[in-house]
Design a protein around this nucleic acid. Sequence first.
RNA 1: GCCCGAGUGGUGGAAUGGUUUACACGCACGACUUAAAAUCGUGUGCCGAAAGGCAUGUGGGUUCGAGUCCCACCUCGGGCACCA
Length: 806
Amino acid sequence: MAKYNPAKIEKKWQKYWESKKLYEAEDFSGGKKNFMLLVEFPYPSGDLHTGHWYAFAVPDIYGRYLRMNGFNVMYPIGFDAFGLPAENAAIKNNIHPRDWTKKNITKMSKQLRSMGAGFDWSRQVSTIDPEYYRWTQWIFIQLYKAGLAYRAETLVNWCPNDKTVLANEQVIDGKCDRCGSAVEQRNLSQWMFKITSFADRLIDDLNDLDWPESTKLAQKNWIGRSEGARIEFRITNQELRISVFTTRPDTIFGATYIVLAPEHPLVQNNELGITNYEEVAEYIKQTKKKTELQRQEDKEKTGVELKGLLAINPMTEKEIPIWIADYVLGHYGTGAIMAVPAHDERDYEFAKKFNLPIKEVVLNEEKFIGHANEKEGVLINSNQYDGMSSAEAKTKITQALKEKGMGELHKNYRLHDWVLSRQRYWGVPIPMIHCADCGYQSVEETELPIKLPPLKDFMPADDGRSPLAKAGKWLKVKCPKCGQPAERETDTMDTFVDSSWYFLRYTDPKNEKEFASKENMTKWLPLPLYFGGAEHNTMHLLYSRFITKALRSLNIVDFSEPFLGRRNHGFIMDKTTGHKMSKSKGEAVDPDVEVAKHGADAVRMYFAFMGPYDQNYNWNSEGLLGVRRFLDRVWNFINKQTTNKKQPTTESKEIKIKLNKSIKEIGEQIKQHKFNTGVSGLMKLLNELENESLLVVSCESFVKLLAPFAPHIAEELWQEVLGNGTSIHLEKWPEFDEALLMEESITLVVQVNGKVRDIIKVKRGLSEDEAKTSAMAQENVRKAIADKTVQRVIYILDKLINIVLE
RNA sequence: GCCCGAGUGGUGGAAUGGUUUACACGCACGACUUAAAAUCGUGUGCCGAAAGGCAUGUGGGUUCGAGUCCCACCUCGGGCACCA
């Protein structure tokens, strides 16, 4: 008998599967239910690392299980290939980003094949393929035409190192999520997607999704809906008003001053006639110098009063001072607040420092909870609203303001529109043309794709101009409206645009007329399940939901949520550094080396065995060895069974029961994505059967149970050892006999006063009296009872009997 | 500060309110071997000679019975954060 040699058999079967097109899914497969098994597609960083293995190999178990249970499974794969890291690496290695990326894709495709996953390579997509990004551009144009994509000047995040604008989602703790540089605020004109117009639905529709609660919560917090009122404050002797947002309109009688953010439009020049404007301008200048990060770190409140101006509190009709201070943020709410120092911690600090009046208007024992005092109280010092609860006053006061034309109910969001312009080379060109006379015009759809020009000098610039501005010939076009000379938009799109719709393309990847036919989409979408990393909670997942909702509103797709189910995977950590493993950080474990040593099957199964799929783990080579030992034993076990000349014609009921039980349990475990206990179930089964003689059909069942986890060895044993002529991966998952399981004897736990005193083996379905008699007959039980009287007996059928004493 | 999630052997972890520690790693001892590796077998929560007792972060509670449910606290991880 030959020894188990994974290196020899794995390549062979990978080729076999590919030549038989085993995993190429039909779009319309009679009677079978379609199931697209999606895992976030990889970024072609150059090398497949342990994280990729974990991400792709484990869900493959689920896909194979579904296939064996009659589903028409599509496990697509592709590359998210545009983006900053590619460009930075290309600059560093003095190579064109296109060449660098393509080289990586070639290498990673090879490595991905070594996994033995059931990928459908015929549907592969790559976001840098013009036939792909043509549709990225097309989607942009549809959104533009619908007013969901627009250009506007706002405060945006600028990364001084990467020399590009970033979306809010890509700024972590005030730093660029790619390079870690402190982000600056710049007022720039940028292309944006109107994600805020779907804010409510992006929150509310979460309720119907089968997603981890933590992910839903992260999105809710990110969108940050707060309900309150917008209130207008007149300025004495001026036409202009100041609009503020508050969640506590009930405290308006305590609003003793107004604060504007230094970025507020009213103070950018002195049209209002502020008497100390020089001082104000200096403060604005100082604020601008600070990064968002520094601004947060300054604990001490600062600010300047706008002298010569007063605002009027619309409820008290009293004049109150106006200040600017950097504790009010330009990019939240209206950039202005009514300060209620008695009931807001920050206003209180500010008022104390600058000696501003503090007026209590809500009776409430407890001081600030969080920043604002959220606890419901009773109003005081508020004229006719005295004695009212905060909740009631909120409604009543907002209503009163509305009648005066000075305010209304308002919902405010933390979420901002998605800034999608990037001043970098390696991305999808935004398909717009700027004409001096006609303004911005979208490119004719028939001209798509607008290809990325092959630039030699693609270095980013400090001035916020994209490298594409250097593509002279490409740049100059005629205005589609008036025909006069015009220029192409030179910004490229955020790569998150590319990845926000790729799953749609998988349903119809070669379609040249549309990004996917409705017919195909209906067959595969919305996705029942999506595997990926938790770091995408407020990025990719949110963006994809937005794009789907936008396309739905344009009637281009007919579902409003792309991913009905979601499972997050954990990460493989480096034990020594405590970091997420990745090649770029010089990870210690190279999956290629481990595969060469122990085989893809062992590596796959080890990942499945480590523990629950959503947790982080340290790689442990000894753990991998344990799985390898298991596969060696499986190999020997099946080989021994078949070389045994005297094939048994019957087998014991016990063997049958054990096998049936495992079929049931392992199936349930895979279905619930409990891959770790699935593996241990197989191990247990082998422990029990290893020294038995099995019928051939039982051997076959065993190998079928193994097939999703270790597809290569299972195929080898199935075809070469057990002598079958077709792939095991087209076989049906074995069935189990429920009646047989009922015949199994069970262990009954015998407790006295809740303490285990014995365990007895009995047949199922014992009556309480029978159980009691058996239990009382046990030596240990009699000893424990001694001369005490039995008070009551708790009997849980087939599980436990508890004898409770006095 | 606010909002989540998690704390079980030496390690990864298992456990519909019902035998805590499945499965695996590691370790110890034994078999095979001149020897080692590999492999196989046995043992392995803590205290105790044993009987037995004690153990799922800490302290309480509910229950015949709590890792699991409730309350408070501690520690770690994550999200949000001068967000009005």
